[in-house]
Amino acid sequence: MPATLSHLQRLEAEAIHIMREVAATFSKPVMLYSIGKDSSVLLHLAMKAFHPGKPPFPFLHVDTTWKFREMIAFRDRMARELGFDLLVHINEDGVREGIGPFSHGSNVHTHVMKTVALRQALDKHGFDAAFGGARRDEEKSRAKERIFSFRTKAHGWDPKNQRPEMWKTYNTRVAQGESIRVFPLSNWTELDIWQYILQEDIPIVPLYFAKKRPVVERDGMTIMVDDDRMQLLPGEKVEERMVRFRTLGCYPLTGAIESSADTLEAIVAEMLTARTSERQGRAIDKDEAGSMEKKKREGYF
């Protein structure tokens, strides 16, 4: 055993510590499972934290019905293999109204199918703590968020009035109807995530690896044609190109990057030389200045 712990060992221990605090002090926690690489790390850490038991909380996927098909297949495989309790929530009102990113734009779609859907799911089950995989290095308003981030009864975040958070001594108290969002990966960087995936051999969705995929150029983004709900506009044509994804979300809102990185090592090498941040591939962050903070105040993760 080394005299001092490595950077990753410290991060791992911190995340496990946080998960155990939640399991010990909240009556109904849930882990948000978004199927991406950060969620995969979170899931892996949860398996570690409660070993030899299973995580004492369910995993919730808020399905916008527009996720990549490979994500859904991966989600169901992981639930089967690891035997965790998977809840899937879809905003049926949104489905009835036919809300989608192509017809309504990313703002309305994300609000109805993600933010509202999440609030519905949390209310329906009465969860008082929800884990998310957000990291402080992702985005400026995230850099300001506490690890234990308080939410009002309406799921709102008040960034100007956050609880002080001292040492590893977390205030886990909430009143009836209030809740806490918990971010065990707050202090991880994108490099830490990949390094940990590599070190621990954590399974991730194949979309992260480069492969020939059918894509279309639209609004400066490379969009993968994942199903026949994507109608081509005049002048657009589908091309088979070697691409991969740095982040995963709804396929019409997630830009692919040109890449030949088809191994974890190659992905990390590519990331180290990248000159753009990972959220650049996301349409939803760019709609307006401060858009992430606004979404979070409304209850987005």
């Binding site: 402080r136 400026k140 308003s141 995230r142 850099a143 300001k144 960034p159 100007k160 956050q162 707050s186």
Partner: peptide
């Protein structure tokens, strides 16, 4: 402006809450 991440901070040109950078 790289670190003042909240809207109110950018508008007022001050830092309100602690930001963590790596």
């Amino acid at each position: 402006l790289l670190v003042d991440g909240l809207e109110a901070e950018r508008e007022q040109g001050i830092t309100i809450d602690v930001a963590y950078r790596f």
